[in-house]
């Protein structure tokens, strides 16, 4: 990891109120994210993996301040963005962009492709009409669409093409960091590979940093250099992509990896599948959030929440078993 990370997230927390109204207080809080910390270097791809509902999307959106965090620090290029006023943040905003999961909901159906991809230019109105058009053509070319597509509307495109339009829009602001929130989950497998390759090419060309959010470990392993696994609002393991799959340490990671199908008919899966459901984030378990489903649970687990600390091989693991033995 480079010395000065582009993005440093420390102790990020988000609780959503549940119920309540004008007069009534919320009767419960959803603890979507409870204390997440990580750093992303320049030009790095950082993966955020977890089941649906584990808070990974909320983390991604908080980084762009699309959701205001309840607590924590987010430093972008050395600046604490949560301390900035909306106006001050506007300047930083262009340096961070987001790609959404649903290519249907993320493009305004009433706008042409040209209007969509040049939307970031609207803010400072510097670019004239002709200039916007030229920029739009360039952007479409970068993502593999044709200039003739400029005047079309989103409904005239397939899911993969729509996702390319979304990527072009993100690129328009010339960002340094792109939060890719499940960018390929809604696409066919054949299209997924194309979009992932496109994202990698663009990273090379523009030196982008990615925060790649996905529930699909194989996709994240392919594109990311470091991966964090989230469970119920906390990071349970953080490691480089290679060692990650060879030597998972947290019991949850082991189970996740076991769930990835292997293209080898002779290899028998040895792992026991996870039992039970993800606990309710309104009323999360005490201590380690994973303990009700963990095979190795012992008396300390329900009492104390394990911190995310380095293990022998450089993995950061949040597990009381993490005393160098690993999980076998």
């Amino acid at each position: 990891m480079p010395e000065a990370p582009l993005l440093q997230v420390t102790g990020l927390v988000k609780h959503f109120p549940l119920g309540g109204g004008v007069l009534a207080r919320p009767h419960a809080w959803v603890q979507a994210v409870s204390g997440v910390s990580f750093a992303v270097g320049r030009g790095e791809s950082f993966g955020l993996v977890g089941e649906s509902g584990c808070g990974k999307t909320t983390v991604g959106r908080m980084i762009l301040r699309l959701i205001e965090p309840t607590d924590g620090r987010i430093e972008f290029d050395g600046q604490d963005i949560l301390q900035l006023s909306r106006r001050q943040f506007a300047g930083l905003r262009r340096r961070m962009q987001i790609i959404f999961q649903d290519p249907y909901s993320s493009l305004d159906p009433r706008m042409t492709v040209e209007q969509i991809v040049t939307e970031p230019l609207r803010v400072d109105r510097r670019a004239g009409r002709r200039e916007r058009s030229t920029i739009a053509v360039g952007l479409l070319d970068k993502v593999g669409l044709r200039a003739a597509d400029l005047c079309k509307f989103p409904h005239e495109f397939s899911g993969g093409q729509r996702q390319r339009i979304g990527i072009a829009r993100a690129l328009c602001a010339r960002p340094e960091l792109i939060v890719a929130d499940e960018p390929v989950s809604a696409l066919d497998v054949s299209i997924q590979a194309q979009v992932i390759n496109l994202l990698q090419d663009l990273q090379q060309e523009f030196g982008l940093s990615y925060i790649f959010i996905s529930h699909d470990l194989s996709v994240v392993e392919h594109i990311c250099s470091r991966i964090a696994v989230m469970y119920l609002g906390s990071i349970v393991e953080l490691a480089s992509a290679g060692s990650f799959s060879r030597e998972p340490r947290h019991p949850y990671t082991v189970a996740l990896l076991a769930a990835v199908p292997l293209p080898d008919p002779h290899r028998q899966s040895t792992a026991v599948p996870l039992e039970g459901d993800v606990p309710n984030p309104i009323d999360p378990p005490s201590g380690c959030p994973f303990h009700p489903r963990c095979r190795y649970v012992f008396n300390r687990c329900p009492v104390e929440k394990p911190p995310l600390v380095p293990a022998a091989d450089g993995h950061l693991v949040a597990c009381w078993l993490n005393d160098g033995r690993g999980v076998e």
Binding site: R93, R110, M111, V123, A173
Partner: peptide, 26 residues
């Protein structure tokens, strides 16, 4: 609630601008 609203926010469009450019036409 649609995602293109979040996208517009990420582009830095003001809330009033989003109302005018995205909500009203839709």
């Amino acid at each position: 609630e649609r995602e293109f609203i979040a996208a517009a926010r990420a582009c830095g469009i003001s809330e009033l601008g989003i109302t005018w450019r995205h909500v009203l036409p839709n």
